[in-house]
């Protein structure tokens, strides 16, 4: 489906190429969410993150989310790019981009996509601290 682009990649994500792909003459608004690696969690210095994915299922769950966004809002294109592997502070693990005729649909769908991705897509991140590594959300 040319209106959806989903990529799971071990290479650096390219923000400009995502924006180029999502732009079209029919669109009146584009909403882009860029996730970046933050240097601290709960006041503790983070050195880097490591992302692991169950790749075939991660792709199929991201496809489901995109499909649901099309079902729920009048959006034109949906792009979801997610990284795997080791990321340094400031690097980009995720880019969501949505285009629509009007901004409300683009904003709402983009928010839905990132929120749902964080709940359902089988991707895991490990935070590296000075005193060891922790799989995020694994333990209560």
């Amino acid at each position: 489906m040319s209106s959806t682009q989903i990529i799971l990649s071990a290479e650096t994500l390219n923000i400009q190429s995502c924006i180029s792909w999502i732009m079209s003459p029919e669109s009146g608004g584009i909403d882009v969410f860029i996730g970046t690696v933050r240097n601290a969690t709960k006041g503790k210095t983070v050195l880097k993150l490591d992302f692991e994915a169950y790749e075939p299922m991660a792709i199929s769950e991201m496809q489901k989310i995109a499909k649901q966004a099309f079902a729920q809002w009048p959006v034109q294109k949906v792009l979801i790019h997610h990284r795997t592997g080791e990321l340094q502070i400031g690097e980009v693990p995720v880019i969501i981009a949505v285009s629509a005729a009007h901004r409300d649909a683009a904003f709402d769908a983009c928010r839905y996509i990132i929120d749902t991705l964080k709940q359902t897509v089988p991707i895991w991140k490990k935070e590296a601290f000075e005193d060891g590594d922790v799989w995020v959300a694994a333990h209560p």
Partner: peptide
């Protein structure tokens, strides 16, 4: 079959 611990992507 795969075990899916709490996900934390994004």
């Amino acid at each position: 079959i795969a075990i899916i611990p709490p996900v934390s992507g994004g």
